[in-house]
Design a binder for these strands. Structure first.
Lengths: 323, 323
DNA sequence: CGTTTCGATCGAATCGATTCGATGCTACCC
DNA sequence: GGGTAGCATCGAATCGATTCGATCGAAACG
């Protein structure tokens, strides 16, 4: 039985196995060849002592790595409520997990500056500043920013916000729309780019208001707006969830989509609770996650990592039609 | 400017400030009183050298703590797609964050056994076994299990699955329902308890099938089932999301809810895309998260922590009616 | 004025591993 | 058979902090 005595160290195991500390270490890490018989003797001794492997804390200090990557997401519930966040997060955790790295959730507070992370991902934030960023830089922690503003020293992964938004706007223009409104996200790099793309085609598009990528919030926003009978023929949203909210609210008011009102989204996620397919700008969520994770791996390895800009694609669905 | 020379250590700072290493340490940690003038001198020296505070890795080793708590959630995208998961996760991260602890996402693989965590939460899993559990026990890492099966040495946080399910079943029985079906989750402790509660009232309830708490999956399941014209007057689901899927599918087939079919859920989350309020069993999600986090804190502190069983409450909405 | 107390500071031990360079040994080659 | 590789093993240094116990002065006390 594994004795109740804790604090079994590798030194104890080495002593029990009759080898040196360094050899015991090699038997576990495999960083240098060890004869099969020796390795077995060490592992047997470890099992007998109830030793569960090298203490990660000690190992981390010596190697100068924690094996943990922080990901800043602001408040969890808002960050993950957006279905667009999940495929990306999944891809990130898959790639990092395969490399033996764990993913640590960080809020905005700089509490987290004290936690042992090898790199940080700034994502899903829709924010322009992060308190902890300077601390990370000071500690030489590599940072990868997703869809964020450009800070010195970070690596960037982004998508073609402007081109996508412009393609969507063009699609609406081609359908004959002339007066359009847009539901925005909170002020951020991504939001500014997308709005620029929209205004490339509709310079005087009206801003309905800003809200998170949340069905209820978008619905409430749309309720106010549509009640005023604004005289627009299309509403461009910045996420599919927002778009779904607008569709639901429009219908509740007796408007037909796309007959009376065209509605467009962004992201290209599944909206199973809608009986139509949204016209939207599809972004490669999994690719974005993979690219982010790979950038992190590169930066941790000390490599020079190039910024990444991923393409988007207009998907025409059933939620937009002739003006 | 903070020189490009890394590897500035506390010893360098101490030397620059003309104090001993131990005093410099105290100036940062505040674990023992240090005269104000000394502290200032140390901090000034640190700023001049571009020293960003004690290396967390070294600090961790010495204190025997990493400040990180692992949370096992299986695959991220399935775990977080369920809206019931978020309020709980939020509460956990809030309580742990206030205590200066970070939250590390763990998959099922035992890769994570090598990561530096002070405690682990097994949650949102709907699974009966976890590969890494034994490793954690061997390493003396406290484990808190949420809605899970009882393993030796862990602390449990759970809700009244059976009582809740039974109360809901009773409600349906009172409405005159006699033939009911149930959509289940994957086999798990929670699922078994709930099914037992249902069978306390409807011993021969029919099992439609199992699926995750996912709208599309539930919809597909319901499509198959309802096509067979099964002759039940009510469907009891194990999450509100499942219930929403069943409602949508029933309507698609021309059934009125609750006129032709009563549908009930579990969890008590918001379903803004449904125009009715689900009859459901409301569980205290935030409380569950708080209780979990507090159990973790207690276990880390080495205290004896009692298991927690949280009450649930039947909420009668518009999705159930007379048979 | 001598003694006790208390607070600030310091030196040294310690946390538990990884890894560099050196050593001893066997095997191989001409 | 002498010299050289090459592999397994070992000893010692190291990662960068935290903390215990000791020391030193100055303030407080009788």
């Amino acid at each position: 039985m594994p004795g109740p005595t804790r604090a079994t160290t590798l030194a104890d195991v080495a002593a029990a196995a009759g080898v040196s500390l360094s050899t015991a270490s090699l038997a576990f890490s495999g960083n240098k060849p060890v004869s099969a018989s020796t390795r077995e003797r060490v592992l047997a001794a470890a099992a007998a002592l109830g030793y569960a492997g090298p203490n990660p804390l000690a190992s981390n200090l010596r190697r100068g790595r924690s094996g943990v990557v922080g990901i800043a997401v602001g408040q969890l519930s808002t960050a993950f409520r957006d279905p667009a966040a999940l495929p990306m997060l999944d891809a990130i955790s898959q790639v990092l997990g395969a490399a033996g790295l764990g993913l640590l959730l960080m809020g905005d507070d700089d509490e987290h500056a004290r936690l042992p992370i090898d790199a940080a991902i700034y994502d899903i934030c829709g924010r322009d500043s992060w308190a902890a960023y300077d601390d990370l830089v000071a500690r030489d922690v590599p940072v990868v920013v997703v869809e964020g503003p450009t800070w010195p020293g970070a690596t960037y992964v982004d998508i073609e916000h402007r081109r996508g938004a412009k393609a969507l706007a063009k699609h609406l223009h081609d359908l004959g729309h002339r007066r359009v409104a847009t539901v925005t996200l909170a002020a951020s790099h991504a939001q500014r780019e997308r709005e620029a793309g929209l205004r490339d085609v509709f310079p005087d598009a009206h801003v309905v208001g800003a809200c998170a990528s949340d069905l209820g919030a978008a619905q409430a926003l749309a309720a106010d707006y549509l009640a005023g009978d604004p005289g627009v023929s299309a509403v461009v949203c910045q996420s599919d969830v927002q778009a779904a909210g607008v569709v639901l609210e429009a219908r509740r008011r007796g408007l037909r989509v796309p007959g009376d009102l065209s509605v467009a989204g962004f992201d290209g996620v599944a909206t199973p609770w809608l009986d139509l397919e949204l016209t939207t700008v599809v972004q490669p969520l999994a690719d974005k996650g993979r690219a982010t994770a790979e950038a992190v791996l590169g930066r941790i390895a000390g490599a020079d990592v190039a910024d990444v800009l991923l393409p988007v694609r207009l998907r025409v669905g059933d939620s937009t039609g002739p003006a």
